[in-house]
Nucleic acid binder design. Structure first.
Length: 883
RNA sequence: GGAGGAUUAGCUCAGCGGGAGAGCGCCUGCCUUACAAGCAGGAUGUCACAAGUUCAAUCCUUGUAUCCUCCACCA
């Protein structure tokens, strides 16, 4: 047989791109009719604001592993890719570009601005797509979607209108979070609270009748121009008598009343609080309860407006504050100023301080939606991995408040509401409206706001499959099987997808929710441009290849734990890939000139059965790990099977036959190896996709592409526990022999006569005999004699021993007796520890009576082994001393 | 103010009721005809601290300490 020769070293650049193109061309990522239930994933759509970072690499690597695994199990499999228009974030990117050109978006106008934003979207989309391809993501590009696609836009309208019709969407004037820089309202979840050092100003508010003053404490004195009352607790004995009295608001002289409201805490400050309904959520509620006037003192850009004294107008809150305080001091209104740290809300996109701002906005009523989402968890329709996130999810749903969905932006889905300028009616419609259905006027205007970006992404799992139409995709692949996401968007996205899906389709959008950790640097810090600690996926792929990146991430992704990495972390995967490459190279070299033969169980040796058994166990371990999303366990099963079992032991053991066997022996051996190798490629394919495909194509026994081959399944018939036990015993002999040689500092080239003496019932006896040559080569023996009967004269030989055997080395030349003595006493010490622990347990009647029978058996065995080691080691010490 | 996570070898982390593990790093010896991105051998741990449950605790319970996240309208 003519075998393909592999390049001397593993170079992923030689084939990764080619293989991806070939998969794509052959349509390998498309769902196929298979057996069993469908398996589908929708990719969390990356924002078109930039390029993918390591977090995306982790997330998509894991999805790729899952999807490839299930594709190979034969289930009809679909992975839907796509991108998100990312409302504010993308608009900010474009506005920043404009700023460099000295322009604002208003200078361009809505239409031109949107044109420009579409260009940015296209550019980033193309980069993102090519990144995903470089990573090897096996998603079905024919199913690719964008949140502002025609179809998805239709889904957004359907969702909006149908919620409106059910009374779950309403418009109203409320105090919302408002980012002055982005110029838009935000939802509660889009505000990040951070502790900041601040001051607590104690301000005197004089009574209108001149009978003195009261003191209120505030962190924001500049909002006092919007004060419309001062409140005390109704049960506060100190202030019972002054409720109803009138105060003169400092710096303006406007009169406000003292009111009583139970929300006031008596303990904080003076127990008196100024009420500014337009600029504080508590005060807003309090104002409503008490029918207070609402005075807005801010412009939309965060500066003070015409409701403030002239000198402060058009200054930002931060600029105005010291001026106001200064003027208060001048007027003798400041009682004292204390340091006071407090939480300040910041915009999650631009980090500007968010203002509570009174404005007309659209909201989704969340209570009933949240209840259904809660129900889904209670019924176990959804399961979180790891489970602890279920608490986080429930708690958020319990305390949910209505969702502000209107944004004063241009980039996004226009709110499907039209206002008739003639009859003043509001028209909410799935289709564009050009004529008022009430008065037939054509004088209509569409609401200028767009929807929160999450209002389209919360429909993602079904809008991408064609909803609201009843499509074949929806029927075949919905609900999806699992969702892989980081924990930072559980609220923004995951919870809301569950709500929308339960609301519109009466079913959870996915069953398993896999929450990954975040990728951080080696110090545990978030990766960011400003810190310069980012690790770029493309750079890693360039250095080590996509397989090395994917495998390493998988190996490190322990259930929900953050992944700490630097560039060097990926050497691990790279070395492993190199190992696979070289092992294959060696086997293909040995295939040259050989014939593949058919073989059956009867022709398998103990070693052969052992490696099949190990492969079989690995398949089981991987299955178990994958089913509970324990990626690191799956990766270590792959790693230790291929490297430790196959390379270190099996291939080593086969070398003698491959090099010195008869033609028949060689043919049989290489046939078995090719079979194992072919199965290994299938086993490893989800984790190292490119290299396994590249190698698979070069195997004489391959069939099509490995990506669509069947995944090795655990088979009870291929499990050989006896053989496994024997091989483990053989490994033990070799290891202890090697250890002895190393301790005695015997040069590797020095070949020695070695005699192995086994005890009665030593189970691996026949194996050691049949693998004589192998063992002999591993322990550097010139001759290796298995001495069952104890006939060999071992006088003067140095022994190494373990359970059931002694291995004598005939060392005539000078050896390091001291070193060996040291080793032996340390062995005795260890064994004595073991022995005493076992004896302690066995002499304890409670242990013997209560513990499981196997546990007791194990202790007995432990004891016997320890005793054997101690006894032999003592003999050996005597022996050494006598030399 | 709530909630969660972390604390195991020099570093990064697995494990989780019965003899302490991996990768990297380190030491020693090897270019053994696949791989020096390799092979072999080796050292290193009161499994944060303190109680409790148990025949048995790194693992379960309860506290304590340090670190990290998330949530929360107390001015």
């Amino acid at each position: 047989m003519k075998a393909v020769e592999l390049a001397k070293s593993y170079n992923p650049k030689d084939f990764e791109e080619r293989i991806y193109a070939s998969w794509k061309e052959k349509g390998e990522f498309k769902p196929r009719k298979g057996k069993g239930e469908h398996f589908s994933i929708v990719m969390p759509p990356p924002n078109v604001t930039g390029i993918l970072h390591m977090g995306h690499a982790l997330n998509n690597s894991l999805q790729d592993i899952i999807i490839r695994y299930y594709r190979m199990t034969g289930r009809p499999t679909l992975w839907v890719p796509g991108t998100d228009h990312a409302g504010i974030a993308t608009q900010n990117v474009v506005e920043r570009q404009l700023k460099k050109e000295g322009l604002r978006r208003q200078d361009l106008g809505r239409e031109k601005f949107l044109e420009r934003t579409w260009q940015v979207k296209e550019k980033h989309h193309d980069i993102i797509k090519s990144q995903l391809e470089k990573m090897g993501c096996s998603c079905d590009w024919d199913h690719e979607r964008f949140t502002m696609d025609e179809g998805l836009s239709r889904a957004v309208r359907e969702a909006f209108v149908s919620l409106y019709e059910r009374g779950l969407i309403y418009k109203g004037k409320y105090l919302v979070n408002y980012c002055p820089k982005c110029g838009t309202a935000l939802s509660d979840d889009e505000v990040e609270h951070e502790a900041e050092p601040g001051k607590l100003y104690h301000v005197r508010y004089p009574y209108s009748d001149g009978s003195g003053y009261i003191i209120v404490a505030t962190t924001r004195p500049e909002t006092m121009f919007g004060d419309t009352a001062v409140a005390v607790h109704p049960d506060d004995e100190r202030y019972k008598d002054i409720v109803g009295k009138s105060l003169d608001l400092p710096l303006t002289g406007r009169k406000i009343k003292i009111i009583a409201d139970a929300f006031v805490s008596r303990e904080f400050g003076t127990g008196m609080v100024k009420i500014t309904p337009a600029h504080d959520p508590n005060d807003f509620e309090c104002g409503k309860r008490n029918n207070l006037e609402t005075i807005n003192v801010l412009n939309p850009d965060g500066t003070l407006n015409e409701n403030c004294p002239e000198k402060y107008r058009n200054l930002s809150a931060v600029e105005a504050r010291p001026l106001v305080v200064e003027d208060l001091e001048k007027g003798g209104y400041i009682e004292k100023i204390e340091d006071h740290d407090h939480e300040v809300g910041h915009c999650y996109r631009c980090h500007t301080i968010v203002e509570p701002y009174l404005s007309d906005q659209w909201f989704v009523r969340m209570r009933t939606l949240a209840d259904k989402a809660m129900e889904a968890l209670k019924k176990s329709d959804i399961v979180f991995y790891p489970k602890r996130w279920e608490n986080t999810y429930s708690r958020w749903l319990e305390s949910i408040r209505d969702w502000c969905i209107s944004r004063q932006l241009w980039w996004g889905h226009r709110i499907p509401v039209w206002y008739c300028k003639d009859c003043g009616k509001e028209i909410v419609s799935r289709e564009d409206v050009t004529e008022c259905p009430h008065c037939h006027s054509r004088n209509l205007e569409q609401d200028s706001d767009v929807l929160d970006t999450w209002f389209s992404s919360w429909l993602w799992p079904f809008s991408t499959l064609g909803w609201p139409d009843k499509t074949e995709d929806l029927a075949s692949f919905f609900p999806t099987s699992c969702l892989v996401s980081a924990y930072d968007i559980i609220f923004f996205w995951i919870s809301r997808m569950i709500m929308s899906s339960e609301e519109f389709l009466d079913v959870a959008p996915f069953k398993d929710i896999v929450i990954t950790g975040l990728v951080r640097d080696k110090q545990g810090r978030k990766m960011s441009k400003s810190l310069g600690n980012g690790v770029d996926p493309l750079e890693i792929i360039d250095m080590y290849g996509a397989d090395a990146m994917k495998f390493t991430l998988c190996y490190m992704a322990a259930q929900g734990q953050d992944v700490l990495i630097d560039n060097d972390s990926f050497k691990m995967g790279s070395r492993f890939a190199n190992k696979i490459w070289n092992a294959t190279r060696f086997l293909l070299m040995n295939l040259e000139g050989r014939e593949l033969v058919k073989f059956d169980v009867d022709s398998l040796t103990t070693m052969d059965k052992w490696i099949y058994s190990q492969l079989n166990s690995a398949a089981l371990e991987i299955k178990t790990a994958m089913e509970s999303y324990r990626f690191n366990d799956a990766a270590s099963a792959v790693y230790s099977f291929f490297w430790n079992d196959l390379c270190d032991w099996y291939i080593e053991a086969s070398k003698h036959k491959l090099l010195h066997g008869t033609d028949d022996e060689k043919n049989l051996q290489i046939s078995i190896l090719m079979d194992i190798l072919e199965k290994s490629m299938r086993l490893m394919h989800p984790f190292l996709s490119f290299i396994t495909e590249e190698i698979y194509q070069k195997l004489p026994n391959h069939d099509g592409d490995v990506i669509v081959q069947s995944y090795p399944e655990y088979d009870e018939a291929l499990s050989y526990p006896d053989e496994v036990m024997k091989v483990e015993a053989l490994k033990d002999i070799v290891k202890s022999a090697r250890s002895l040689r190393s301790n005695l500092q015997i040069a590797p080239e020095k070949k020695l006569k070695v005699v192995l003496r086994t005890s009665d019932g030593f189970k691996a006896l026949d194996l050691v005999k049949s693998e004589c040559t192998f063992v002999s080569s591993l322990i550097g023996a010139s001759s290796f004699i298995v001495d069952e009967k104890g006939k060999e004269d071992t006088a003067g030989a140095v022994p190494s021993s373990g359970a059931g055997y002694e291995c004598f080395f005939y060392v005539k030349d000078a050896i390091d007796v001291e070193a060996e003595l040291k080793k032996l006493s340390s062995d005795i010490e260890k064994a004595e520890k073991l022995l005493s622990s076992a004896e302690k347990k066995l002499s304890n009647p409670q242990f013997v009576n209560n513990a499981k029978a196997e546990a007791v058996e194990k202790e007995k065995k432990k004891k016997a082994e320890a005793e054997e080691i101690i006894q032999k080691s003592r003999e050996h010490i005597e022996l050494l001393k006598s030399i």
